[in-house]
Design a protein around this nucleic acid. Sequence first.
DNA 1: CATGAATGAGAGTTCATTCAT
DNA 2: CATGAATGAACTCTCATTCAT
Lengths: 192, 192, 192, 192
Amino acid sequence: MAKLQKSIDKRNALVKATIELVNNRGFHATSMSKIAKIANVSPATIYLYFENKQDLVNKVYIEIKKEFTNYAFKNYDDTYPIEKSFKIIWKAIADFKLNEVQQALFLSQCDSTPMIDETCRQEGLKHLQPLIDLWERGQKEGVIKKMSPYLLYAYTIAPLSFLMTMQERNAFQLNDKHFEDAYQAAWNSIKE
Amino acid sequence: MAKLQKSIDKRNALVKATIELVNNRGFHATSMSKIAKIANVSPATIYLYFENKQDLVNKVYIEIKKEFTNYAFKNYDDTYPIEKSFKIIWKAIADFKLNEVQQALFLSQCDSTPMIDETCRQEGLKHLQPLIDLWERGQKEGVIKKMSPYLLYAYTIAPLSFLMTMQERNAFQLNDKHFEDAYQAAWNSIKE
Amino acid sequence: MAKLQKSIDKRNALVKATIELVNNRGFHATSMSKIAKIANVSPATIYLYFENKQDLVNKVYIEIKKEFTNYAFKNYDDTYPIEKSFKIIWKAIADFKLNEVQQALFLSQCDSTPMIDETCRQEGLKHLQPLIDLWERGQKEGVIKKMSPYLLYAYTIAPLSFLMTMQERNAFQLNDKHFEDAYQAAWNSIKE
Amino acid sequence: MAKLQKSIDKRNALVKATIELVNNRGFHATSMSKIAKIANVSPATIYLYFENKQDLVNKVYIEIKKEFTNYAFKNYDDTYPIEKSFKIIWKAIADFKLNEVQQALFLSQCDSTPMIDETCRQEGLKHLQPLIDLWERGQKEGVIKKMSPYLLYAYTIAPLSFLMTMQERNAFQLNDKHFEDAYQAAWNSIKE
DNA sequence: CATGAATGAGAGTTCATTCAT
DNA sequence: CATGAATGAACTCTCATTCAT
């Protein structure tokens, strides 16, 4: 195998191991040596790819956040009407949270604890702009309620994080009906 | 001062210190000696009141959760009509998250990380039963959509946690208009 | 044994172990765990008495330097004539270097490497003032050559460090005749 | 450029980097990778020229020591009278310590710490033989005091190391007058 | 000849917890 | 009831060294 590929593989293994451990045990119980063991490398090797533990978790956060936003807007086309556009994005985000559970859980934990540098968090937010823009257009067209985008986010996207967490903890199982109900609830809460 | 009172004061100081540190630095950066220092006691003293670190954080979680549910239902009276009842509870919960920010933030962090024992989390959930019951009645009366209570919670209460976190990070400032918008969004998402 | 005494004993054991290791292996090969092992305490215990490794070695340096100057001036009385005074101090210093070999070697190593903070070194120098003053008086009385005190020190005290090091390395053995020769050489190099 | 020359250049760069780091940071803070970085080579390259870290510092020591003795005796001619000969050698040594400060500081640090193998130190001493011989002749002619060569060295050469260190630390600045004073002090301490 | 990637071992330091007082 | 001192274990991170290329 090419040297470069081996490098990429190792880095990926480290990222994966970090996510897995933080999700299952929490950041406080995620040590560099555990990460190394799961990724099948020496602890010292981590420091070839990341400056230190904080840098590791920061970079993982940013990368996963980028994956998330790419996923969210992958089918989005701003020529569609507002509600259709919103539905496409909302479903994509819901899909991400249900299919890429590990990544989504990791983001959720980062977003509600002080384990990530503030600057990284800001960085991660930028890529949501298309959704904000869509909402603004929707408000101008009188299709969407005139509320702060924070409220719009709180009532359409944030609930998905909650549901994903519950599902992960086996509290309940999301089925197609739930999924449809959830979309209706989201749309009802923001439509004019 | 009575000996008993001094004991209670110390325990309270420990609980407060734990919340403060977990909120500001995160669980991973909250050490027993830091807690002791902030609470103005010796590290050894913690072990007079709590078995170990896990027990400390578990007990703090349960206590705050109890405060939270007491607060949520303090004005609730199950003879009122459904929507009025829901509004009372929702507003109480919103008040808690806006006024008792430290406690609410702590709960939020506990609920989205593996820092609390699963049994404690279950324990914490039980006290929400009156709200579940209210929803069930509402559904029977045809006032509230026939959705899983997890969905109802996701779309009415979970958004408040998100908004509180944003407010805490100075991302935005909740005013009365937001507050009213938020209630409408919550109600719209679950009303039949 | 009293608690305080046990504390003092532990600190002393740490200081002694540090000197021993730095002398025999060098600063680069003196690890905190080796120090702890020789002092018969846990590595963590070191940090009850010293902030970190640098602080440990800084403090040891300053303490030994103080012992050294106390020793140097213990029989000194500034009413004696210049040469008698000088001889008393010189002999005291020579005695220190020959009798308190470990301490003297440690100082010597600190003084010719960058292992000590510059401020500590300055601090250590202050206590030599009486010797500087004596030389100045001697120069005014025309008994001592009008040279920089650095030169006076270089030709009277510095040679003793060299001889001590040689003796420690078993290169040669200082006897009474050497001792007398050395004093004469020192005095000849600075007398008017 | 010839391949051989490039090799020599690399080795020289390594030697220079080692001296620089040991002088400025101390042996304890001089790592192989830092040496490599400053010398602009890969860490692995060091091991093409030196067996390991100890071998590197040993060899640098011996080489600089050889430069030092070459310098010391470069104008020496054993047909001159004793004092003239001594003066020539002393001034050469003083010149070395003032002009080749980096080399001289490195030797000084090696000579007062256990960072060099004992055998290397012995090796380094051998080349001083002409000075020892000169002193012996001087003693036979009754020009130089009948003292151990260790004492003669201690009072003529060792002070120069002290002065050089002080100058390097900006404690004071050697001028021509100091230089002359120093020679007189040296000679006075050993002349019959 | 030269290297960047890799690593086991060990560095300094902090931790949760205990215990004599 | 309360403590400061003490510690073994574990932490993050760096080191000297090796090896496939």
